[in-house]
Nucleic acid binder design. Structure first.
Length: 473
RNA sequence: GGCGGCGUGGCCGAGUGGUUCAGGCAGGGGCCUGCAAAGCCCCCUACCCGGGUUCGAUUCCCGGCGCCGCCUCCA
């Protein structure tokens, strides 16, 4: 049974299910006003790993992750570029899904767009007004947080203490600095939807309430996102649900930062902040491995050296898959379909290793520890193979591939038909390989080395094994 | 000002009141190999500082120092 840190209590607690055998989770998705950055990648990977691990345990998972496609930033960018906001949103949403695919993130069960949920949001704001806990101003509708019991839970601070630190914007019509917009009245030229309290657009915090409750129902199991969403975003979502007397998320999970050279990543810090850049420069699986290597709540350093380190770790895993000609879990995309414990065992994985993996992961998703166990299996598999114990070796190697698959890591066994694999050498290249084998058989090592140079020049890594020369990219 | 987190061996990064241990990467030495690559073995080996609790603390408590984050849009 998975135990997971809950931001609301500050404790690691069992992740309870409202409906037996089924987990309902909501993860705050991106505002699509720009290309995704490393932080988007991290939360997507973290919650993908969580989801996969729940699936691994045989649970069904309803996974909802939204697209915020109407927002001040989108409007600002559209205005700056002289095009409609929905065009900006559509462009960056497309980039988003493409990046998610390349990271091997399983597609959400539902991926609602804010603009398609405006009607429920208008209803929700109307209900809040009816309770008297929300109020209308010239600029829109605000929620009075002082009327909400327990406001500050996720910040783990009292309302008073939050108030004392709050910065007050001049010119706002809020009754309290912490009150937040449920609805923003449209200024001329801005996109607007009709509402009884004035045409405008929803405030950011409102959409997640409407969509999570609408798609997953009251008292859904888990709400997640990056640590900076805990306050105020998630707190403000919770406040709305509480104000309406509805049961909201049963458990809150937040992942840690991406840092660059010791500081929170920011767009001003140049290199590697864009996820698309990272994925162009390195194996997308390396970022997943990097994320898996540290605890999900810890900050991670993502820099060229740490990425390179992860790529080398990946190479060790791939080499094992190659040695045993395993790893077909990557079809059809960059990541495997969900792997279940049952499926892993049926595929021949070692039961005690699966158990060890499970107990690590059950402990607040200790992926780093689980991964250490996997690397241990790599060594054991190689040792067994070197020692001629091929059945044992194969069982351990299968375990590695299956457990990596459970974490969403597709290993590459070097098969020519493998998605994302090296591809089949063309005729002339294959002829060179054959010629090199002949030269080695004839002990013409000068010729063999020359051919290796030539192949290396074309980007092939040459490996001589008992069965002859193999090459790979 | 309020609240929270972190400080581990060359680097990254887990974990724990006590004999041996994370794990990866890098480095050194060996084995294997025609040479490489891959693989295996061995070595390098830590817990910010000062008190306290304890038979014993890197692990618990207190204090200090340093770093980081949230309190404002932010993954």
């Amino acid at each position: 049974m998975l135990r997971l840190h809950d931001t609301a209590t500050g404790q690691v607690e069992p992740l309870r299910q409202r409906d037996a055998g089924r987990v309902s989770m909501y993860v705050c998705g991106p505002t699509v006003y720009d290309v995704p950055h490393l932080g988007h990648g991290r939360f997507s990977l973290v919650f993908d790993v969580l989801r996969r691990y729940l699936l691994f345990g045989g649970l069904d998972v309803d996974y909802v992750s939204n697209i915020t496609d109407i927002d001040d930033k989108i409007i600002a960018r559209a205005a700056a570029e002289g095009r409609p906001p929905d065009q900006v949103a559509a462009e960056f949403e497309a980039v988003w899904w493409q990046v998610m695919r390349s990271l091997g993130v399983l597609a959400p069960t539902h991926a609602p767009r804010a603009t398609q949920w405006v009607a429920p949001m208008v209803d929700l704001v109307g209900e809040l007004l009816a309770t008297g806990k929300a109020y209308v101003t010239a600029g829109g509708v605000y929620l009075s947080v002082g009327s909400v019991d327990g406001y500050g839970l996720l910040a783990r601070q009292s309302l008073d203490s939050l108030r004392s630190g709050a910065r007050v914007d001049v010119g706002e019509e809020k009754r309290s600095p912490l009150d937040f917009a449920l609805w923003k009245r449209a200024k001329p030229g801005e996109p607007a939807w009709d509402a009884p309290f004035g045409a405008g657009r929803p405030g950011w915090h409102t959409e997640c309430v409407a969509m999570s409750l609408g798609l997953l129902g009251d008292g859904f199991d888990l709400h997640g996102g990056g640590a900076d969403l805990a306050f105020p975003h998630h707190e403000n979502e919770r406040a709305q649900a509480v104000a309406l007397g509805r049961r909201f998320a049963g458990h809150w999970a937040h992942n840690g930062w991406v840092v660059v050279e010791g500081e929170k990543m920011s767009k001003s810090l140049g290199n590697f902040t864009s996820l698309t850049d990272l994925l162009q420069r390195s194996d997308p699986r390396a970022y997943r491995l990097l994320v898996l290597r540290s605890h999900y709540r810890s900050p991670i350093e993502v820099t060229p050296p740490t990425v390179a380190d992860a790529e080398k770790g990946l190479a060790r895993l791939d080499a094992l898959a190659r040695r045993f000609a395993l790893a077909r879990l990557d079809a059809p995309g960059a990541a495997p379909e969900a792997v279940t414990a049952e499926g892993a065992l049926a595929a021949g994985a070692d039961a005690s290793s699966v158990e060890a993996f499970t107990s690590r992961m059950d402990d607040d998703l200790d992926a780093s520890g689980a991964l250490a166990g996997v690397f241990d299996l790599v060594t054991r598999a190689n040792v067994a193979a070197d020692g001629g114990r091929s059945d044992e070796a194969r069982r351990l190697a299968v375990t590695v591939v299956q457990l990596c698959g459970a974490l969403g890591l597709a290993l590459r066994g070097g098969g020519p038909d493998e998605a994302g694999g090296p591809g089949t050498p063309d005729g002339p290249t294959a002829a060179l390989v054959a010629e090199r084998d002949a030269a080695r058989a004839a002990r013409d090592f000068a010729r063999a080395d020359a051919i290796r140079e030539q192949l290396a020049g074309a980007g092939w890594v040459v490996e001589d094994g008992p069965g002859g020369t193999t090459i790979r990219r």
